[in-house]
Design a protein around this nucleic acid. Structure first.
Lengths: 239, 239
DNA sequence: GAGCGAAGGACGGAAGAGCAAACCTTTTAC
DNA sequence: GTAAAAGGTTTGCTCTTCCGTCCTTCGCTC
């Protein structure tokens, strides 16, 4: 039976134990690449940050050293110094073969997160959340000609929806999903017309959330994501 | 700004580095508790299993020893021996305080997974998937008076939906979510009427999947899950 | 009934990750 | 000019994991 095969394959699949070092690089690196930590922003002091993240300072420093060598942060010493997000950021790297091979699963996972977020945001969003989302839609409208800027605001919109659910795990899931998507779409051309229609969907999603219309939010979100997916399917192997 | 607070809190939140030993106990233990590995079933031989799971045999043995001491598996030596899932299984343990404190986030995560699965299953389910799901619905119908049996088949139905998406990551996400939910609902009384209405929703979900009606599958699934959630909200703190 | 082979069970050393607690160096605010 | 606040460095310990080897059990085959 194919059921047993897939179940067993999943249960007995390799255990990938990510080290604290790797997870830290990932977390901070993704936050920087997504713009959650803006260029020029200062990170908390090492002694504070390692406490917050529940790791030893030496482990944190390994991660910061790696991010420093890849050009994502730079550190200055002395009083008033600190670790700062680089400005400008280094250029993004092309996706690895492994990332490309799993792009469909990445999209599937994102679909789940975004749908759940859309439904729960529609149930729970407060007025101030909606205001923030409105602003982001407007900001996106002004960035149709500038893909990097558009993508930044796009991420903040999607993460903003996740924040409106008040569920930290969904915020984490959303940032992870967006990080994975960024790796995929960084190198794909996006003409202004596509971005305009994408933002029209944003507008409809926010409207549905405002009206507490969860099914509609979910439906529009599905369309929104399948737009991206169709573009990828045309460009990537296994599409 | 609450946005910055939640984003930063998420980015700088504690890094949880689960050891290979812990992850293995979790994986196998969850699979056993969910019935994915049926009582009496034989696990692959240690020398094979540690290869499949990408860990050292000594690490796997630590995990198996733990599961043996908790009564979930028992091992027999000699040719024709092996490690077997206990029959009957030990009684479930009551949820920890930590699990109870996070029950809402657990439900949120499950909602996301189940919604994504419902939508993708509606796009991708093949005839043999639908047959298997039909059988499970029938099986559930016969188990309305026996909650443990009902719950077992319920899990297999939801995991079966995930399998119909052909996305290993979603299968994993589903088993994790179901494992977390099982910890929550094991001790809650479920009268046959509730189970009957729950299974009526199953029927509607499978029907929507068969008709490739993703939005309807998502809508019914949302109702289905919110049933559970309302029950929990009435019984647990912070509801 | 002797022995082969497949299974679990046990031990010991090597390597690496992570932690903790110091101490050093640079810079600037006061 | 000095103290404080930051990054940078060093050292040693603990725990996890890995790898290889050997032991023990016991059913199947000859």
């Amino acid at each position: 039976m194919s059921e047993d095969d897939l179940s067993a394959a999943t249960v007995f699949a390799p255990v990938r134990s990510q080290t604290a070092f790797e997870e830290t690089v990932d977390r901070l690196g993704t936050a920087i690449k997504l713009g959650l930590l803006a260029p020029g922003a200062r990170l908390p002091a090492e002694r504070e940050l390692c406490t917050r993240m529940g790791i030893a300072r030496s482990t944190l420093r390994q991660a910061l050293t790696a991010l420093s060598q890849s050009g994502h942060v730079r550190a200055t010493r002395g009083r008033g110094g600190g670790t700062f997000v680089s400005d400008p950021l280094p250029p993004a790297e092309p996706p690895t073969r492994e990332v490309l091979a799993l792009w469909r699963e990445t999209c599937d996972e994102r679909l789940a997160v975004e749908l759940g977020v859309a439904v729960l945001a529609a149930e729970r969003a407060e007025p101030q959340d909606l205001e923030a989302l409105d602003e982001l839609v407007a900001e996106l409208e002004d960035a149709l000609e500038d893909f990097p800027a558009f993508r930044q605001a796009d991420i903040r919109l999607h993460v903003g929806l996740a924040e409106a659910t008040r569920s930290p795990r969904l915020v984490r899931a959303m940032t992870d999903a967006q990080g994975a998507m960024t790796d995929l779409i960084a190198y794909i051309a996006h003409p202004p017309e596509v971005l305009a229609s994408s933002n029209a969907q944003h507008r409809r999603i926010v409207a549905a959330v405002r009206q507490r219309d969860a099914p509609r939010a979910a439906r529009v979100m599905t369309e929104h994501l399948q737009g991206t997916e169709h573009v990828l399917a045309g460009l990537l192997p296994g599409g």
